Simulated assay, not measured.
Amino acid sequence: MKKFIIPVMLMISGSVFSQITTSAPVAEANRWTFGGGIGLGFGSNSSFYLQASPRVGYRLTDDLEAGVVGSVSWQTSDYYKSTMFGAGPFANYYFARSFYVGANLQHYFINYKDKYYDYKVNDQEAALYLGGGYMQRIGGNSFMQLGVMYNVLWKENSSAFSSGLVPSIGFVVGL
């Protein structure tokens, strides 16, 4: 009887382990990532700033991700009102599961109104952000990203932005 039970148990345990190993790649098959960031600011002269930037990415490899990011922001104060929409591709390379470098090309559509002089501007501007930062795991496959990007296309007197340097805080799920 022992000669019969031991081979049957080995075959059953072998089939259980083979099912576990074949089902693991199915869970790994989802390579999509989702995330983004939000910003909120207050200042003098009744100024208020609200920004949101959702993103969708795809992990091409375990360390390389590419996707699309959008951006929308509203600014207002006693003197001006501005709305800005942007969209474009991005790519991030992750190393040591704690750091990343990235590139982000955005094309912005800007609507600006000066309340004091009744001056309006509808403009477009491209921005190429290069930079990197640190990632902190916040649970499972979710991370918080802290970084700095620089717009290499920024020009001091011809840009809608006050600076080319942009600090960033965002969240990513799916890495």
Rank of each mutant, 00 (worst) to 15 (best):
A91N: 08
V56I: 13
T83A: 04
Q75F: 04
G57R: 01
F85L: 11
F85G: 06
Q51A: 15
S47G: 14
F48C: 10
V69W: 02
P54D: 02
S47Q: 11
G86R: 01
Y58V: 01
S73P: 06
Y93H: 12
W74P: 00
Y79D: 05
V56S: 02
P54V: 02
D78Y: 05
T83W: 10
A91H: 06
W74R: 11
G88Y: 04
A66P: 00
F85A: 07
S53R: 04
F85H: 01
K81E: 14
Y49T: 08
D78W: 08
S71F: 07
G67T: 01
V56A: 05
L64R: 06
N92C: 08
T61I: 09
Q51D: 15
Y80S: 03
A96G: 00
T76F: 02
V72D: 02
Y58L: 09
G86E: 03
V68C: 06
R97S: 13
Y49L: 14
V56Y: 00
R55E: 09
S82G: 06
Y58M: 07
V72F: 11
T76K: 11
M84R: 14
Y80E: 03
G70I: 02
D63S: 12
A87H: 07
S77W: 00
G70D: 04
D63G: 04
V69Q: 07
Q75Y: 05
P54M: 00
T76N: 09
R97Q: 12
V69A: 13
D62E: 12
V72H: 05
W74Q: 12
L60F: 09
Y79S: 06
Y79Q: 02
Q75C: 02
Y94F: 13
A96H: 05
S53K: 07
K81S: 11
P54A: 01
K81G: 05
M84I: 13
G86L: 05
W74S: 15
A66N: 03
V68R: 04
F90L: 06
L60R: 02
P54T: 00
L50K: 13
G57P: 10
Y58W: 06
A96W: 14
F90S: 05
A52C: 07
T76Y: 05
R59I: 03
S77T: 14
Q75R: 05
Y49D: 10
S71C: 08
S82D: 14
A96V: 06
A91V: 13
L50E: 09
D62T: 06
Y49R: 09
V72A: 11
N92H: 09
D62K: 15
A91R: 00
A91K: 04
S77F: 05
P54I: 01
T83H: 07
S73K: 10
K81N: 13
A87N: 09
Y94C: 08
S71T: 04
V56P: 01
Q75I: 01
R59W: 01
Y49N: 15
V72Y: 12
G57Y: 02
D62P: 11
V56Q: 00
S47N: 14
D63C: 09
F90M: 06
V56G: 03
V68W: 10
S73L: 12
V72T: 03
S77L: 11
G57H: 07
A96Y: 13
A87S: 15
D63N: 15
A87F: 09
G67L: 06
P89Y: 14
S53N: 08
V72P: 01
T61K: 05
P89H: 11
A52H: 02
W74A: 14
Y80D: 06
A96C: 07
T61S: 13
Y49P: 11
P89S: 15
F48P: 07
A87D: 01
R97C: 04
S71L: 10
T61F: 05
